[in-house]
């Protein structure tokens, strides 16, 4: 792998440590309010300053890292699961199944992403009932972002499976009497795992961006918890007077996105030159 890939990977490792330990590194927890210390700039006590309620911004960015990364990775996993399932079945079985599944994919494609995400979040959040609000929001976000992201993955997987199906070893496996499911799961999927891994790496930063937009809309994680998107859009409201409030969460988002892009580019060169990366549609 290229050097830039290793740089991306080590940045991500650093972020992981930050997400797990950052909240406990300073002298204040993320939800500790000291109103008399509100809206301070960075200092030795508050490394990244404080917000309007006097909460330590460093701890909040760190706690936000945990939430944002969890949502991004979770939703990408979810969309990968659906995309692999539908795309795999569609490409492998072909014929009428393929036509109907692809028609469904086209249909979802003609709905605006923002609309589907908002609808899903509201419906899921209300439908999840008794779970504590943080988990409810997180789960709703994971399912909603994943519920939009699977479409392009399904198309990609279908194309890859269609290609793999033509190869001689698939025919050989058929001739030996191998069952469809086993052939798809144990042989075809591992064979196309390279481009899928690359797509996975590119979808995570896209999910982080989408999450930040959902937070800007006001449907993100609710206080006292906050994701990077929530922190950045809260800071956005006061950015002329207190630029540090929007600067650090945005910086965290940008560094993470950069790291994923560096890693993704390197992985693509290493594993599969055909896939050209997948962007957001929001």
């Amino acid at each position: 792998m290229r050097l830039s890939g290793w740089i991306g990977a080590s940045l991500l490792l650093g972020l992981l440590v930050f997400a797990l330990l950052g909240d406990r590194m300073g002298s204040h927890r993320f939800d500790e309010q000291r109103i008399e210390h509100s809206l301070q700039g960075p200092s030795t006590e508050y490394w990244l300053g404080t917000d309007a309620l006097g909460r330590d911004q460093w701890a909040r960015v760190a706690a936000g890292a945990k939430i944002s990364l969890l949502i991004a990775v979770g939703s990408t996993f979810f969309s990968l699961l659906i995309g692999l399932g539908l795309g795999g079945i569609s490409g492998y079985l072909g014929g009428r199944t393929d036509r109907w599944l692809m028609r469904f994919v086209d249909l979802v494609y003609s709905l605006p992403d923002v609309l589907v995400i908002i609808l899903l979040i509201e419906v899921l959040h209300a439908g999840l009932g008794d779970v504590p609000d943080l988990y409810r929001r997180q789960l709703a976000l994971v399912l909603a972002l994943g519920g939009v992201g699977w479409v392009s993955i399904a198309r990609l997987v279908r194309g890859l499976v269609l290609q793999a199906r033509e190869e001689a070893w698939v025919e050989a496996a058929h001739a030996l009497g191998m069952r469809n499911r086993r052939l798809l799961l144990r042989h075809i999927f591992p064979n196309i795992s390279g481009p899928i891994l690359v797509t996975f790496t590119f979808r995570i930063p896209a999910a982080i961006l989408t999450e930040s937009i959902v937070s800007f809309i006001g449907l993100g994680i609710q206080p006292p918890f906050a994701s990077w998107g929530v922190l950045a859009s809260d800071g956005f409201a006061a950015m002329r007077s207190y630029p540090h409030l929007v600067l650090y969460p945005s910086l965290a988002i940008s560094i993470t996105l950069l790291a994923f892009h560096l890693l993704g580019d390197a992985l693509r060169d290493l594993l599969d030159p055909r896939v050209r990366g997948i962007g957001t549609r929001v």
Binding site: A232, I253, L257
Partner: peptide, 9 residues
């Protein structure tokens, strides 16, 4: 870099 900044920022 263009892909790494949220649009509202």
């Amino acid at each position: 870099a263009g892909m790494s900044v949220p649009s509202f920022v």
